[in-house]
């Protein structure tokens, strides 16, 4: 099972990314758990400078922007 983390403190873009990730997972029937990380000390494990960040299986795949649904699906495939 994939583990997906959305890094963000609750800004508008972070919420939008979380919703988009959940939608992608649901639409494609993927086997993935989606987590939200709001603690800065934890978030900085991935050394991000701009939220929201997206982490798939402990690897940071994007930061500071909202990727397209196709991109997200690519990382989750």
């Amino acid at each position: 099972m994939l583990n997906v983390k959305v890094l963000g403190s609750g800004c508008a873009n972070c919420k939008r990314l979380e919703a988009l990730v959940r939608k992608t997972v649901a639409d494609r029937g993927l086997d993935a758990e989606v987590e939200k990380v709001t603690d800065y000390a934890q978030m900085m494990r991935w050394n991000i400078m701009q939220t929201p960040g997206l982490v798939v299986n402990d690897v940071l795949v994007s930061a500071g922007r909202i990727p397209s649904e196709a991109e997200i699906a690519g990382w989750l495939a």
Partner: peptide, 13 residues
């Protein structure tokens, strides 16, 4: 590009 919601990670970074 800067958004005040990223101020903290940016500061730490």
């Amino acid at each position: 590009p800067f958004c005040s919601c990223s101020a903290v990670p940016l500061f730490i970074g």
